[in-house]
Design a protein around this nucleic acid. Structure first.
Lengths: 337, 337
DNA sequence: CAAATAATTGAAAACGATTTCAAATATCCC
DNA sequence: GGGATATTTGAAATCGTTTTCAATTATTTG
């Protein structure tokens, strides 16, 4: 049913009907109520595409899906979905090969030119991320999940990665561990860098030497956690403790430790960062896993919320949120032997 | 830049330009080439919303994201993305609480009335899925990943769940196992039912008795795999082998077996179904995991492909694909002690 | 009670493309 | 070379809304 026909049925002009439904103040309360009721009864809904053409608003937020971190991505999106369910805003998934920067830029450009989304959410930025510069130049509103050191002002939400890893590491140092390995995220990403810094600062704060050989950078998967942990453990001077970048990494580390006949907690301590997956909880691992914790899903919801605020006109330089992380100590970290 | 202005710059009418860009045959090759080149140079792209309004085509496929199986969902979507990257088709994620059927139906109705998507992909259907009936009644083209026994004809792609589990189970029976537990998917879903059937048929084919107590139904997570496996293993008459519904479940089973001081392969055999996650491979588990295998990502790509064909006018009753699964035997399944 | 003001309603012009139908130009064939 | 046919081009209508501006009706006020 089209507006014209519906208006006729209600006995009003299209103008008034449109105004009544979009909540304009100049239509009387009684007519509005009537129109809304009739719309519900007759099942009239404005055609999204016509509305979009006319208003210029698309009603969609784009989120870039890379080849990596699909786990975290799904959780983040679930959070976004939670927040946007009540809004009339869609989530558009934009696949990105994440390999060819040139092609990636092309995708953004296309996106901008064809006006498919009102805003874009960018993940896992780099300190000087060319995507941010491009999006800024293209004039698409964008929101950064994470941070970038780039000179361009941008709205962002990030967790305190430096503090998280620093506290984790200090905890291990307090337990007497000195050879501590870290399996961090991919090299070059801001959060990996922040975590490296936190790691180093923990040592520096206690005037201890840190072996740079004991840091690995890679995607957060069970598989790679396993491989890196094995590699470290089989070296001539193996670590007595691990800082794992994610829950998946921790799973891999657990496997690696056990595959060498060692016991988690007793022989090797493990601490991780937990993004809170509904299907993989640190408490329930055996032995339970000490971890810093910050919900990825909550971050998704909040990012969606802030992006809406951004679109509503709130100033970019106003929108910065740094989330602290919880630290929960459990059985996987014990004094060094 | 708008069509009108761009056309002026090229020195042609909007009509011709539009035709040239959309590949109509009645425009000469030389002009088309010129127009395309200029469009690229000047960065002209038709406004999506205008095109959508005019043509009625939205250029988006909706995919329902439930509360469960986010893992599989991410892989599936990555596959879709792969296929749709070259097409001018977006992926719209539609969050669905998956709890209140009524609300769910409301969401579909809204979706239909507001023309946000050209088609919808439905996952994990039930034998008599009300969503299918509703989508059919609403007249939205839809594609089912999985199958339903419903009388309404629908396009679908499914894997041979029955055959997969049957073969897995037969393999365990061949090894002499008699008490075999299965940790299956959520109750009521078509694929869970098919798997139950495959499981039972394996026993029946060898005229053996199967203990219905040894089947659990739940979401595919590490956590729940662990819990169900523990429960079975701690019973008075524990199983000697497990059929795990997913890789996550298998991880949980591994943990459970080990937490009781037993060895995978030696004391307890495990076989699983592997949807192929890039970050969690059966070969690399320790010990390596026997598994049936079918790529979720490939399924996503193919579903996207078939949905496009559906939209292009291919008959619904023509589009049915049943994928066989591979079976790879590894170290986790051994003769019963 | 009339004039002035405020509150509602409507007619018609956008939004930016596609596409029908008609006109102009190029090509063919005897 | 001229009429017929095939190939290219363009003018204008259209998609279904929102919104500007003007017109109408209701309310206030001196």
């Amino acid at each position: 049913m089209k507006l014209k026909e519906f208006a006729k049925q209600v006995g009003l002009s299209p103008t008034t009907v449109s105004r009544a439904l979009s909540g304009y103040p100049e239509v009387s309360e009684t007519t509005r109520a009537r129109v809304v009721a009739e719309a519900l009864r007759l099942g009239y809904r404005p055609d999204v595409n016509a509305v979009r053409l006319k208003t210029g608003r698309v009603g969609a937020i784009g989120v870039i899906m890379g080849r990596f971190g699909e786990f975290h991505f799904a959780e983040f999106m679930a959070g976004m979905a939670e927040r946007l369910a009540s809004e009339d805003t869609d989530i558009l998934v934009i696949p990105m090969a994440d390999r060819d920067l040139n092609e990636e830029m092309q995708t953004y450009r296309r996106l901008a030119e064809s006006r498919r989304v009102d805003a874009i959410i960018v993940h896992s930025p780099k300190p000087n991320d060319p995507r941010i510069e491009l999006l800024d130049r293209l004039g698409i509103p964008f929101f950064v999940h994470g941070r970038s050191d780039i000179a361009i002002p941008h709205a962002w939400l990030d967790i305190d990665n430096e503090g998280a890893i620093r506290r984790s590491t200090e905890h291990l140092l307090d337990l007497g561990h000195r050879r501590i390995a870290m399996i961090n995220g991919r090299k070059g990403l801001t959060y990996s860098i922040h975590r490296d810094i936190g790691f180093r600062k923990a040592f520096e704060g206690r005037a201890l030497e840190q072996d740079a050989q004991l840091i690995a950078h890679d995607t957060f998967t069970d598989e790679l956690g396993f491989r890196h942990a094995r590699f470290f453990l089989e070296s001539s001077n193996p670590p007595t403790a691990f800082v794992a970048g994610s829950m998946m990494t921790a799973l891999g580390v657990y496997r690696a430790v056990r595959s060498l006949g060692l016991a988690i907690g007793e022989d090797v301590s493990v601490i991780a960062h937990d993004d809170v997956f509904p299907y993989l909880t640190a408490e329930n691992m055996a032995p339970s896993l000490s971890a810093t914790r910050s919900s990825m899903r909550a971050a998704g919801a909040r990012c969606a919320d802030l992006t809406l605020q951004l679109l509503a006109g709130r100033s970019v330089s106003d929108i910065h949120e740094l989330w602290p992380v919880e630290l929960n100590l459990r059985e996987s970290t014990r004094p060094v032997r």
